[in-house]
Each structure stands twice: as C-alpha cells, then as structure tokens.
C-alpha cells in the first residue's frame, strides 16, 4: 500500500510537470554555479560573506587618473549615457538552492522533477508498447497454433538469440536520437518475455469450455481472442507491465547516460548522472544523490507493487 502511494506520488509529480505546473523553468539559471544545498550551506554562508567584504576593503588602491593621456577619455561620458539607456535586469543568483544547483546554476530539485517526467514517460509508454506487442503476438500464436505459431516462435527465437543489450544498441545505431525513438527501441525489443507468457496462457485457455461455449453461440475468432480470453489473462499482463516499467526506467537511464537517449535539450536522470560523474571529482555530490535516490525510491516502490500485485492476482501462488 505504501508502495502504491509512492508510485502515485511520482506519477502525480510527472503529470504536473508535464502540464507545466511545476519545474517548467528547470533550465533557468536561478542560483550561482554549483550552489550548495540549503541544508548544509546555512552555516557556511555568513562566514564567506564577511570574508569577501574585508577583502574588497583592503584591495582598493585609488585608480590613477590617466584621462589626459587617454585618447578615448572625451567619449566616456557619452558611452556611459548610452549604456544607461539600455535596460538591464539585475540578476541575483541565490547562493543556495533547496537541493543545490548544477554547473549552470540550475535548480537540482526542478531538474530531478523534470527528469522524472522523461523517465516515467519512457518507462510507462515503452512498457505499454512491449506488453501490447507481446500480448497480440502471444494471443495470435497461442490461439491459432500450427503454422502461425511456428512463425511467431521463429521470430521469438531470432530476437532472443541476440543478447538483449546488443539488440537495443543495434536498434539505437540505425534510428535517430530522441524521446520517441528510445520508447520505440525499448518497446520493439522488449516484447519477448510477455509473448512467452501470453502464448502459454492462450494455449491453456483456447480449449477451455467457456471458449467453446462462446464459439457455440457464434462468437467470431477475434471476439473469442480478445473479448473472452484476454480478460482472463489480465493478471499476467499487469504484472508484466510493472516489471517492464522498472526494467525500462533503468535502461533509459543507462542509454541517456551513454548519449543514446534523450537529446541535450531535455533532462533525464541519465543525463544528470552523466554530469554528476565530473562533479563528484570536485566535491559536488548533490546532483548524484538527488537523481540516484529518486530513481532508487521509484524502482523499489514499483518492484514492491509488482510483488504485491502478483501475490494478489496470481491464483497459483495462493
């Protein structure tokens, strides 16, 4: 139940971020470069501020007047006047941010929220695609059997004989970069496990009495496949769906890190971790912790939810 709350919280966060309620300005420069998180910097700020003032007071020798030898001297007043006409907004970067800032002074909290949008979208949509593909293939193969089954089994053997990660990379090599592409790659390569289970379910159900009863009252093949049998395999699909969400969220992070995922104009937990590697060497750990923790919490919550769903829905385990 707690895991359901956490998952719901993340999805709500992602939706509000997608609709622009929060974190729409994640790329704005709101703090100084590598602003430390507020909770550790509160004590340190005053001392550094005082140090700066005294330093400014000491290093202030009177500027030497060179206006009689400076050929540009007469025009300074004019320039100053013209410069004054240009409106400028004075920008006050804040010294601390709730969860710290990155190299360009962007708020890590907002980046993490925006990143969750990408990660959850990819995980969810790709998992839906993979489960849908696997379900349709598995249903067709299991229901019809014979030649059709042989053909899908052949396709399954082909896809599983290539190591999974290599399959993803091969797809990534030929397709362009972008959010839609990464969803497509994960969905097109991830259907095999679902297919296997759905095929077994359909073989099991196809000969059952209720299906034959449906046939007797004149239900078409499509109606039997999708209206009668499909609801009975719902638990398999649901468990598979949440398992694939976890798997794909992890995969997206790794692909984005390697530069094969989302473009630079977007932020994801993977690109945050890519930045974090360099930051760690100079002691800026907060981006790593923010992205890593939020991902770990989400993944744990979804995994626990999967286990709970399986216990509740799978009749064999009772």
């Amino acid at each position: 139940m707690a895991s359901l709350t956490v998952v719901a919280f993340f999805v709500a966060l992602m939706l509000s971020s997608a609709l622009g309620f929060v974190a729409h300005d994640w790329s704005a420069e709101v703090g100084i470069s590598y602003a430390p998180p507020a909770f550790i910097a509160a004590g340190a700020r005053e001392t550094t501020g005082a140090g700066l003032e005294t330093a400014a007071a000491v290093t202030g020798p009177k500027p030497v007047d060179i206006s009689d030898v400076d050929p540009l001297a007469p025009r300074y007043a004019e320039w100053r006047e013209r410069a004054g006409k240009i409106e400028s907004v004075r920008f006050h970067p804040s010294a601390t941010l709730p969860l710290g800032g990155d190299k360009w002074g962007r708020d890590v909290l907002k980046k993490t929220i925006k990143g969750s949008e990408v990660s959850i979208t990819v995980g969810l949509v790709a998992a839906l695609l993979a489960v849908a593909l696997g379900a349709v293939f598995g249903a067709t193969a299991g229901y019809w059997g014979g030649r059709v089954d042989d053909m899908f089994e052949w396709l399954y053997n082909v896809f599983t004989s290539i190591p999974y990660i290599l399959l993803i990379l091969a797809f990534a090599a030929v397709l362009s970069r972008g959010l839609a592409t990464i969803i497509l790659i994960l969905g097109l390569t991830g259907w095999t496990g679902v297919y296997r289970l759905m095929r077994a379910e359909y073989i099991k159900h196809a000969g059952r009495e209720y299906v034959r009863a449906a046939q007797a009252i004149g239900a078409s093949h499509a109606a039997r496949m999708f209206r009668h049998i499909l609801p009975n395999t719902g638990h398999v699909m649901l468990v598979q769906l949440s398992q694939h969400v976890v798997q794909f969220i992890k995969a997206e992070v790794i692909l984005s890190f390697l530069g094969l995922g989302v473009p630079v104009s977007m932020v994801s937990w993977g690109t945050m971790l890519a930045e974090a590697q360099e930051e760690l060497v100079i002691g800026k750990w907060w981006q790593l912790v923010a992205a890593g923790t939020s991902m770990a919490v989400l993944v744990t919550a979804v995994s626990l939810l999967t286990d709970a769903m399986r216990d509740a829905l799978d009749p064999r385990l009772r």
């Binding site: 992070v253 890190f257 971790l273 760690l280 790593l288 991902m295 919490v297 744990t300 995994s303």
Partner: peptide, 15 residues
C-alpha cells in the same frame, strides 16, 4: 539485496 538492486548500476560505478 532488494534495496541494493534498486540503485542504478551507474550510481555504483560513479561512487
């Protein structure tokens, strides 16, 4: 073990 599995491999390597 379950907690350890939830953290990305990337984070382990970086740290």
């Amino acid at each position: 073990a379950t907690t350890a599995m939830s953290v990305s491999f990337l984070v382990y390597i970086i740290v």
